[in-house]
Amino acid sequence: MEDLRYLDDVSTLVLDQEKCIGCTLCTQVCPQSVFEMQGNKSQIVDFNACMECGACVNNCPTQAIRVSPGVG
């Protein structure tokens, strides 16, 4: 979403690259293109676009990604 940006520096998204096995699922399920593959590891390339929907967390096979919004 390039023309519509929400508040910066609020997302609770954390990616632990150590645990990433390079399956690319997070790059497929994220509706905001937050992740991109860099070599065989996923990397956060647009942190402020994260809307904390949890699709990546739900599909990461190694629990390398975390999102912990409050009540929402």
């Binding site: 979403m1 519509l4 940006r5 929400y6 508040l7 609020v10 997302s11 609770t12 509706p31 905001q32 676009a49 994260c50 809307m51 904390e52 919004p69 409050g70 009540v71 929402g72």
Partner: peptide
């Protein structure tokens, strides 16, 4: 914010 496809719960709370 609850209807849009780009707002994060943490942002809305803030």
């Amino acid at each position: 914010t609850g209807t849009t496809p780009f707002t994060s719960p943490s942002g809305v709370e803030k």
